[in-house]
Design a protein around this nucleic acid. Structure first.
Lengths: 201, 201
DNA sequence: GTCTATAAATGGATAGAC
DNA sequence: GTCTATCCATTTATAGAC
């Protein structure tokens, strides 16, 4: 490979976005206003471009949505696919909880968008389907932990799973990477509260 | 008061919806598709009316949103305004948690809609402002409980509050009144998991 | 209280010049 | 890679008949 003359596609003159930059800005706007409430004109305005210039970067508004949702889903699926050193269901569960928080924080805008999808189109329905598959795998993990005696059995396993992952998912509503809570601290706090609750003992 | 001849505004011929019925159907549709993705034509179709007939019932699509959001907010505010017999912050907190779950379940569609509002208009921003006020009052309650030693102090009070109410709010994502989980049972489970966590001891 | 018809604006998306 | 100009479907909302 010979040395490249242009270190990075040098910016000169007009903005000159690439697809990933456009996607990042689009997702930010979708999260601010909602996907449906965001027009391609809104996006063009935020980028300082015209609509036509935008359509040079992607085929449709929905394609941007599909790319963003895949970014979120692949991250979450990675948490479950990661080989676990533990056979102990309780340890696996704690690792998955922690991993989910970290993915959520690291891909915050993408996961935020995912969690707001309602199934309004084929793209959205496909994403919901992948999400459901993820949820089922987690529910199975909680059921394992219940059988092993490490998760309370006086509450339905599916209900605990939903409550605890509802807690995790709610992080997108308020967490800001530039805020005072760092990602490791947050992951630790979530695992603590999920496992042992808020009450002192 | 003399006996009414017509027990209930009798239905005869055309549907003849009143405002509340229209509102209920509208909120259901907003929750299915999203407020922005739902057109007045969609709503008219679901009601079996024309758009024009609908505009006889309300002034604008946004007025429906405002009415729905007030229904949710007044319910939640009622939980905090309810006079508490206890001075103990821990007991007050448990009562608020339980009350919030019950309001959420009893006004499920309205609270669902509220929790999805992003601040896209004056109506939405006013609702977010009322929600923030509610959150602040709850956070203050948790801080009281921490000072009293009944809530763990090794996690930031504002973070615990957000996590636990995130858990409560996430109920709208899956709870169905006709399902297998009844409201009292759910409220009990939420208080249990929020206070003591999912882990066995 | 519901209808048909239509206004006025905005939506996503494309054509073709530079 | 961005522009101006435009297409056509759909949107919120209104006018006026029954």
């Amino acid at each position: 490979m010979s040395a490249s003359v242009e270190p990075v596609p040098a910016r000169r003159g007009r903005p000159g976005y690439d697809r990933e930059q456009v996607l990042a800005v689009a997702v930010g706007l979708f999260n601010e206003q909602g996907y449906d409430a965001t027009s391609v004109a809104d996006l063009a305005q935020r980028l300082g471009l015209t609509k036509s210039a935008l359509y040079h970067h992607f085929d449709s508004k929905e394609q941007l949505l599909a790319l963003a949702l895949d970014e979120a889903l692949s991250g979450l699926e990675g948490v479950l696919d990661a080989p676990s050193p533990d056979a102990d269901p309780a340890a696996r569960l704690a690792a998955v909880l922690r991993g989910a928080v970290l993915v959520l924080v690291d891909r915050l805008p993408y996961v935020t968008l995912l969690l707001r999808v309602r199934g309004n189109s084929d793209v959205e329905r496909a994403a919901l389907e992948r999400r459901r598959a993820f949820d089922h795998r987690v529910t199975a993990l909680v059921a394992d932990a219940q059988r092993a005696g490490s998760v309370r059995a006086d509450v339905d396993g599916a209900v605990v799973t939903r409550l605890v992952f509802g807690m995790v998912n709610s992080i997108v509503e308020w967490y800001r990477p530039d805020g005072s809570v760092d990602r490791e601290r947050l992951a630790h706090d979530v695992v603590t509260v999920a496992l042992d609750g808020m009450r002192t003992r």
